[in-house]
Design a protein around this nucleic acid. Structure first.
Length: 742
DNA sequence: ATTATTGATTTTTTT
DNA sequence: AATCAATAAT
């Protein structure tokens, strides 16, 4: 029978535990899946098995993943096993699934039109606006802090009242007050922030019995991946949805819980059996991904953690190459070594797309990028300043968002100001408050401002803008890229960019074209490709979701971004105390454990080779700082590491170095940097720059340049220096070294 | 209303 | 060192 064939194909090649996970019938199931144990395989096979072997309707199955990329991959793999029926399975991230639910019940929730997702950036703009309106310039609440406090509270399902009563100082009350204003203003604009997506969905399912019951009835089976990183709202959502059938299958690894700071709660996975009585537990500890040596390092890495379920990964794989450790003098040397290792891997036959360089913070990418450029290694950086957060991209999207939702004040403000059209903050604020007071949308308000006695250049300009956008409203179902192209042209965005920056406008306009191309690509890939869907995609999809591995490039990214991915060769950089583990975690044992798990995640991304690097000194913010080796390295038995490179002599002192105090290392680093420079720093010789004739100075980054003028005195004096090839820069004296006079 | 200048702040991680 | 927001100047 064809059906038996496909079922046996689904089960083929699975080990016994994996097969049990796939074939598990009714009732809650917890799969504790170590890194590289084949959990994605089990999840996809289980999805396919439910439909093909157990006859569950595809649209009665819900699968939740951590990233959209993982969702996409799962869909492709299930489709291979099931064919087109797989299309009906609900697969997505918590956020995308909640948005899907909210959209279906838009009216019941009281939204007037298209609900609009505010990303973190938009939320921050709104909070800034509210703070500004409240007029208290001395308010000590910083907008960014307030935003993250509100976000964290929402993820923990704490309401403003509780935040108010539970916080000791006046800070909690201020934030609670701001929070209420913020939520009210969001709703006025038909807006929801990221956290609202989850929170409103849970509220809808809980408070509206018939809707909640309908979904609980509908989803006979629920699968959740990366369960260790779920937060309180997500737990409540899953609980409500699994209430009727109790068929929840959670897959996760407590050792890979790395999102505590975002509200993730490891007790969700640790307490799973309590939350869902009658749970069957499966443990998958055989690793199929990494070599034995890499796995040894991984096991050692996480051993020191106290709050974990005890387990040890094992493998039948070959021992493989030794795990290398390279200790550099400074970050440039570290970066050069990274480039060298990449070239070695390529020479050994590895594909660039299967190599990754990982670091703790985005700021570390720069040195590595420069080394890659010099070594002519193609690379791509994931994260950082995300494409969709660029000003020129957000500007244009604001017009599109305004079409989709004419109540969106944040987009209105942005569109009205870029390009400048003679209407300033004042005009915009008056339109916003008038629209709010009269209960009309912003485009209507602009068009009717004149009738309401609001006249002047600014209002006329906004009326023109509104009139133009109104002509586009009936065309909202046309292709997004066509509309974007037309808007960019109509508003003269190219000319605007050119007027803004002589030096950068071409790059920025290239981003505009990239956006338009991106929209076109999206239209080709999706069947529902209207403006609303496009904007949703933009809001919910992270950069890593678009990672394509068919490009021959090395990937540079943070360890967080690397979660769930695997590479033939992995380089983990910046293994210094204070960086990885990050300095902010050193005082809190629980945060330190999270850093350790993060290190574990980094190590377990590697299939074939793993290289660890650290630097004795590093520029942080703006000064050199010496660092101790990461304590995580000292927790790995030395015989598991092969210390390599020119610095063999220095690193041979590895155990001794570990004992050295930070102060000693700092002095040593300072000594090193002095040796490199061929003169004392200018600050010790304030007169030097004033001597007649050409004064030449050296700068770490720009090289040698000529001093044109001096502004101020002492260390803080700012010198104007012309560097050949870099142009004229204003630089504080203490960063410059005199190299003699011409 | 717009632009120039100064001053503060930044680097932890992101769906 | 560079970006961004508040402030001053036009």
């Amino acid at each position: 029978m064809h059906r038996d064939d496909s079922v046996s194909a689904i089960l083929e090649g699975l080990n016994e535990i994996q097969a049990r996970g796939v074939a598990h019938g009714e009732g809650p199931l917890l799969i504790l899946a170590g890194a590289g144990s084949g959990k994605t395989r089990v999840l996809t096979s289980r999805l396919a098995h439910l439909v093909a072997a157990r006859g569950v309707a595809p649209d009665a199955v819900l699968a939740v993943t951590f990233t959209n990329k993982a969702a996409g991959e799962m869909r492709v793999r299930v489709q291979k096993l099931l064919g087109p029926t797989a299309q009906a399975i609900w697969i997505g991230t918590f956020h995308s699934i909640c948005l899907r639910i909210l959209r279906r019940h838009q009216e019941a929730l009281g939204f007037r039109g298209n609900l609009t997702v505010f990303d973190a950036d938009d939320s921050l703009s709104l909070i800034r606006q509210i703070l500004k309106e409240s007029g208290k310039t001395d308010d000590p609440v910083r907008a960014a802090d307030a935003r993250s406090a509100i976000s964290l509270a929402k993820n923990r399902m704490i309401d403003p009242e509780r935040l108010e009563s539970e916080s000791a100082g006046p800070g909690g009350r201020r934030i609670a007050r701001l929070w209420r204003l913020y939520d009210a203003r969001l709703r006025e604009q038909d807006g929801v922030d990221f956290d609202d997506l989850l929170l409103l969905a849970v509220r809808l399912l809980r408070e509206n019995r018939s809707i909640g019951d309908a979904y609980a009835q509908r989803f006979r089976h629920i699968l959740v991946d990366e369960y260790q990183d779920t937060n309180r709202v997500q737990l409540e959502l899953v609980r409500r949805l699994a209430e009727r059938h109790g068929n929840i299958c959670a897959v996760g690894d407590d050792d890979q819980s790395i999102y505590r700071w975002r509200g993730a709660d490891v007790t969700n996975i640790l307490g799973f059996e309590r939350h869902f009585p009658g749970t069957a537990v499966l443990r998958m500890e055989q690793n199929y991904r990494s070599t034995r040596r890499i796995l040894d390092v991984a096991n050692a890495a996480v051993l020191k953690n106290a709050g974990r379920m005890p387990k040890t990964l094992w493998t039948e794989n070959e021992p493989g190459e030794a795990v290398r450790l390279f200790l550099a003098e400074d970050e440039e040397q570290e970066a050069r070594h990274v480039a060298r290792r990449i070239r070695e891997e390529v020479r050994g036959g590895a594909s660039l797309s299967h190599l990754a360089v990982l670091y703790r913070t985005h700021a570390q990418s720069r040195a590595i990028e420069e080394a890659c450029i010099r070594a002519e290694i193609p690379y791509r950086v994931l994260g950082g300043i995300a494409f969709y957060q660029r000003k020129e991209v957000k500007d244009l999207l604001a017009y599109l968002r305004l079409l989709a939702n004419p109540h969106d004040e944040v987009s209105f403000r942005r569109a009205a100001l870029a390009p400048r059209r003679g209407a300033g903050e004042m005009t915009i604020d008056r339109i916003l408050s008038e629209a709010r007071a009269r209960g009309v949308d912003l485009l209507t308000a602009c068009e009717r401002a004149r009738e309401w006695g609001m006249e002047g250049r600014g209002f006329a300009a906004l009326a023109d803008l509104a009139a133009y956008l109104m002509t586009l409203v009936p065309r909202i179902d046309e292709k997004p890229h066509v509309l974007l192209e037309e808007i960019a042209h109509q508003i003269g965005y190219r000319e605007y960019l050119r007027s803004q920056s002589e030096a950068e406008w071409e790059d920025r306009f290239a981003h505009v074209l990239e956006l338009i191309e991106g929209a076109r690509g999206y239209e080709d890939a999706e069947e529902s490709a209207g403006v609303v869907d496009f904007l949703e995609q933009v809001a919910l999809y992270a950069q890593s979701d678009k990672l394509r591995d068919d490009e021959e490039r090395v990937t540079l990214m943070t360890v967080h971004n690397a979660k769930g991915l695997e590479f033939d060769a992995v380089l983990v950089t910046g293994l210094e105390d204070g960086l990885f583990p990050h300095i902010s975690s050193l005082t809190d044992p629980e945060e330190l454990e999270e850093e350790r798990r993060l290190f574990y995640v980094a190590v377990t991304r590697a299939r074939r080779t793993l290289t660890l690097t650290a630097s004795r000194s590093r520029r942080r913010i703006n000064r050199m700082a010496g660092s101790d080796l990461s304590r995580f390295l000292s927790e790995i038995p030395e015989e598991l590491l092969e210390i390599e490179g020119r610095l063999h002599a220095a690193t041979a002192r590895f155990p001794a170095r570990r004992a050295a105090t930070a102060k000693e290392l700092h002095e040593e680093a300072a000594q090193d940097s002095e040796d490199e420079w061929d003169g004392p720093i200018i600050a010790r010789e304030p007169a030097a720059a004033r001597v007649a004739g050409r004064t030449l100075v050296r700068h770490v980054r720009y090289g040698i340049g000529e001093v044109l003028s001096v502004d101020g005195e002492g260390e803080k004096a700012r010198l104007e220096v012309r560097f050949p090839g870099w142009g004229t820069k204003k630089i504080v004296r203490s960063y410059l070294v005199p190299v003699g006079r011409g």
